[in-house]
Design a protein around this nucleic acid. Sequence first.
DNA 1: GATATTTGATATGGTCCATAACAATTATCA
DNA 2: TGATAATTGTTATGGACCATATCAAATATC
Lengths: 173, 173
Amino acid sequence: MTVSKTAEKSSEKSGEAAKGRKDAGEPLAETLQLGELSEQLGYVLKRAQLKVFENFLRCMASLQLTPAQFSVLLLVEKNPGRNQTEIASTLGILRPNFVAMLDNLESRDLCARIRSTNDRRSHILVLTDKGKAVLARAKKLVATKHEARLNDLLGQSNREALIAMLSKIANEF
Amino acid sequence: MTVSKTAEKSSEKSGEAAKGRKDAGEPLAETLQLGELSEQLGYVLKRAQLKVFENFLRCMASLQLTPAQFSVLLLVEKNPGRNQTEIASTLGILRPNFVAMLDNLESRDLCARIRSTNDRRSHILVLTDKGKAVLARAKKLVATKHEARLNDLLGQSNREALIAMLSKIANEF
DNA sequence: GATATTTGATATGGTCCATAACAATTATCA
DNA sequence: TGATAATTGTTATGGACCATATCAAATATC
């Protein structure tokens, strides 16, 4: 059956729903009204976050890095000589959950745990050479394929304003 | 905000980069450097989202509504006569996962499933009287305690700009 | 009427998040 | 000093959320 794409979409909302499907040629489901939902901060924030993470994963497919893993590598690079507790806590990751994450990165030879000589309980985290190389490539991918997309979408100044507002929310809300 | 990139190679934990502020003798507040992380869209977006959800839950503690549940009630109210598949899909919720969610709302007498007379496979969703009352109170709480906080933090125009940008990202990224 | 599709539902597995508990090590202090 | 407390990494475990396969009932399609 060929369906003619009628651009006409009557937004009829019959409370009785007496309209049957016997009338052929009406297979397109009318889009629901979001209403106040589209103005809800949490709703739009969550949707945006999902889209951004999804895009991030696509951009990083060749390196197989998740946003969380990328953040760990960035933080370890920026703060060499820190232990697991310090890195995890500043990222909001609980220590127990950080173990498997590090096991993964270490098994891929991206970072390493080094037993501290000062405090033999703690493991100092460092990037391996491969980890540094991978992070460098990851940064380029993120900058050119991911963050650049924001500029295309919002423009430079809006992009900076957005980041600033989100940071403010993250820190002061 | 450009940070001077000092080629720090010091692996000692006391090695701090020059920040213009010098304090000695103290056990160094141990605040890690976020570095490029604070400019990463995904990072700041996720942190903001967590904070907003956390605040939402606090504001709704008296009504025991999660953001997802609130969005369902809002959508059902705005679109009466729709079935589970339609409501769930527009919220990005998979049908199997929507079942338990509805079981919860229905057990609390907030919404009800009504077997459709047209298509006896589908369940039409409606708000109960209690559901409408709870949603009305929820809206007020959200407006006065939750969204209002954004105005205090960003101001009215910035708040609207933020919502608009997030919507754009959610729809076009 | 035979077959395919849709709807709600169940079962199941994966990922993330949170808490308790443990051994090894270090800090505290009586 | 030695007994006790605290910290670090770790394991185990449970909950919340997300995704897929599958099913029975109802409907659509041919």
